[in-house]
Design a protein around this nucleic acid. Structure first.
Lengths: 346, 346
DNA sequence: TTGTAGGCGTTATCAG
DNA sequence: CTGATAACGCCTACAA
């Protein structure tokens, strides 16, 4: 209570006065990029200044710095929706890495809608971000190509598009891993719950899976590849459609764990036992997957790492350097939903 | 390609020169708080200025504005972890509302760890935020009380603590709703998967449930209230512990949908059929709940709205006004996990 | 209705 | 090694 009411924060000037030196000296000491610190001021004045800074709880005013240096250290991040666990996890990685680079990030949801992508990007630009991370790239859309012309550094994460720099999971490989597994189990009639057609994630996972089956001599008919939203409701609908086929598939690959969970529900409604009657595999190995009543076989993708690497990549671009796109390696976690009796893992 | 390379953004001065007027005139027109716009400049000059602003793609430099006005329009948001769907959804609400208020928000994860709460809060302060939203309040912890002395406006969301302004769900009521439902179904021997003890959400939901059972004449013994993490793994462990009782409970209330899903798994491992042998209810009505193989009865809490209202409340505080805390009303969605054969809803 | 001047806090340049 | 000085872009008395 007695505390003084929210007084003005300390500035360089405050400290300069307190320490009896010039502002620029204080600035040099406090900027202290290690080397400068040495020859910025005499040992003792430097110490004196640092002491005052600490005592006065000095924090450099980032707005002043940004104004002066024309660098905001701000990064805008666009995701379809943060309530999608996958992107939320990716963002955690982004946030971590950003902190390491001294950058601040803010996220926005685009709901995978082009006009919102544009609007949110403009919003970010109006905040004068130094760069952007797009987690919601649509393949074949003009937006990113147009945006690239503005010369604002950006990277894609999770999904790739065109030749824009990106950090993704090797989704084709992920799809192949599932196909290998299904083939080994003897499944010949399979279906794919393929996600949104505009997302490279779903498309690549599907392509990898379908390719492998074609190579094995069991091409997957188009009718057995069903698009849907990346959530449980979408997965349920898609599974319903797959089950209308006669005979129905004996194994289903959902390109997303939540869609897989929806599919599990649909199967059950049809009196089919997942794992026994129909194998089901998902993608991303959500923490939930292993804990489901019937543990879900899923492709493990390094979501956090993907986010972190994406931000590292952006940091390179911001530093004026260049760096190549990355594709991170997935692996398969086998569980009871495809191999009953399995205790875990591969 | 031919495009000019990332040229300097337009400033007030740029526009002033183009339009042949003074900077301050431009400023007045473009600030345009409706009233000012009227008497700021003659109709035509005003139009002329706006045209130039548009043509030059002018965006006010927020750093300059912040520096000048001592207002950053930045809000820091602290959550336990963004990969928790509940908080991610709450944050979506926050973000929406923030955009409406012209505020920018950035989230950070505290992992519910006190030292991280402190560190992240300091980080936010060093960004010179105007205010904060805490989604990770711990009841009984000293941190918030101490922080309040710094006179930086803040609100709590999802969890409450002390008398700090907050927007929460009426979690006691939520717990009661479940108890009412269980009692109506004839359950006398019940268990609670209670979440983390330091979170008011878990504590209140548990308290409401336990109170109602005590009133009904069937007090819930302490041994039947098990604490755990708010996720599937935590729920599974807790359920395992509940099932060691002999006889085991006939109904289990998990204060969180993910914990409930973990419990579902544990039940199944014990050869029990959720919904038939043991009733299970969750909390928050995650989109997943309705789509599970056995649809989950759950308390519907207005997560997005909670976030939005929290930010509205903060905006009031930032404007120097005061406003009361809010408790939003939950309702129960009854599904097959407690009432087999149920098609949906209440 | 329009213009002038000064400063928000920091950094960079130039002299001493 | 240190100090003065200007400028980043915007806002706002105050003056004309």
């Amino acid at each position: 209570m007695a505390r003084s009411d929210r007084r003005r924060p300390a500035t360089l000037r405050t400290i300069a006065q307190a320490a009896g030196v010039d502002v620029s000296t204080v600035s040099r000491v406090l900027n202290g990029s290690a080397e400068d610190a040495q020859r910025a001021a005499s040992r003792e004045t430097a110490e004196e200044i640092r002491r005052w800074a600490a005592r006065l709880d000095y924090r450099p005013n980032p707005h002043a710095t940004s104004l002066r240096t024309r660098r905001s250290n701000l990064v805008g991040v666009l995701v379809p929706r943060l309530s999608d666990l996958v992107l939320a996890t990716v963002y955690e990685g982004i946030e971590d890495a950003a902190a390491r680079h001294g950058l601040t990030t803010f996220v926005m949801n685009s709901h995978d809608r082009p006009e919102q992508q544009r609007a949110r990007t403009e919003l970010a630009l109006s905040r004068h971000v130094d760069g952007l991370v797009f987690g919601d790239a649509h393949t074949g859309a003009a937006f990113l190509d147009e945006f690239a012309e503005r010369r604002v550094p950006f990277v894609l994460v999770s999904r790739h598009a065109g030749r824009h720099p990106s950090v993704t999971c090797d989704d084709r490989l992920g799809g192949r891993l599932v196909a290998d597994h299904f083939l080994a189990l003897g499944h010949r009639r399979v279906g794919v719950i393929a996600g949104e057609p505009f997302a490279s994630t779903g498309a690549d996972r599907t392509a990898g899976f379908v390719d492998r089956y074609r190579e094995a001599g069991f091409p997957v008919p188009d009718s057995h590849v069903v698009h849907c939203g990346f959530d449980a409701a979408g997965g349920r609908d898609a599974a319903e459609r797959l089950l209308r086929h006669d005979p129905p598939p004996t194994a289903v690959f959902a390109v997303n764990d939540f869609a897989a969970i929806g599919a599990l529900g649909a199967l059950r409604d049809h009196g089919l036992r997942p794992g026994q009657d129909v194998a089901v595999a998902g993608y991303n190995d959500t923490p939930l997957a292993a804990e489901l009543p019937i543990p879900l076989t899923s492709v493990v993708s390094p979501m956090r790492e993907m986010g972190a690497r994406a931000l590292d990549l952006l940091a390179e671009l911001l530093a004026g350097r260049t760096a190549p796109s990355e594709r991170l390696r997935p692996r398969l976690a086998v569980r009871a939903s495809t191999a009953p009796g399995t205790v875990e893992e591969s």
